[in-house]
Design a protein around this nucleic acid. Structure first.
Lengths: 101, 101
DNA sequence: ACGTTCATACGATAAACGACGTACTACGAT
DNA sequence: ATCGTAGTACGTCGTTTATCGTATGAACGT
């Protein structure tokens, strides 16, 4: 589980899925990752097998959603802490990259 | 950082260091890990390079301590959430292993 | 029926990782 | 001076991992 979230790409996926409302879903293709489709499939599979997301076929597309409830039951506060920390970290890096005077 | 904590051995080290008071320290050898000394060194190095622990030589022994302050500043609540979740997970597994009637 | 789109499956490959053993250094005790 | 102890450095080995390309399958639109 921690391993599943310790990859930048996967964390980006989770970050993308995070603001969705309960039972709201997004197809895999909604996220623009700098990797090929097959690698994307791989990461989604890792997340699914770690219990982080659930995937359902809706006609032609495969919809994804975070398993917020289950995650908060098993790992209370974890996902929240990780995403908060990641947002802060990226904030720092952005500030660094812009090299303020 | 997440990667550093996503290994069972390293998590065990952090779990061991966790209950220590501020500025209390423990030598590497205080933890009984089911791995050789060289592998132990490797894991301690990963933790140190990830900023999770700090290591100081005290005479002949190398003392270790969690960098609680820095970690809570950079990743508020993360370590807490991880250790809580891990404790719960291990609790579940123990209960499963004992196979209650 | 045909092509398009979305996602998976199946290699292949290069890098990273965990684990080991051995050799080495630094310190303290005898 | 010698030995033991604690930890590191380095090389190796097998496994896992992230990435890719290509081929495949399922559903929709024309």
């Amino acid at each position: 589980m921690l391993h599943a979230l310790s990859d930048p790409m996967r964390l980006q996926i989770v970050r993308f899925l995070w603001p969705l409302e309960q039972d709201e879903e997004a197809p895999c293709s909604a996220i623009d990752l700098a990797i090929t489709k097959s690698t994307t499939t791989h990461h989604f599979r890792v997340l699914r097998e770690a219990g982080v997301i659930r995937q359902v076929y809706r006609g032609t597309a495969k919809m994804n959603a975070l398993r917020r409830g289950d995650l908060d039951a098993l790992f209370p506060g974890l996902l929240d802490a990780i995403l908060t920390a990641d947002a802060a970290r990226r904030g720092r890096e952005d500030r660094l990259a812009r090299s303020p005077a």
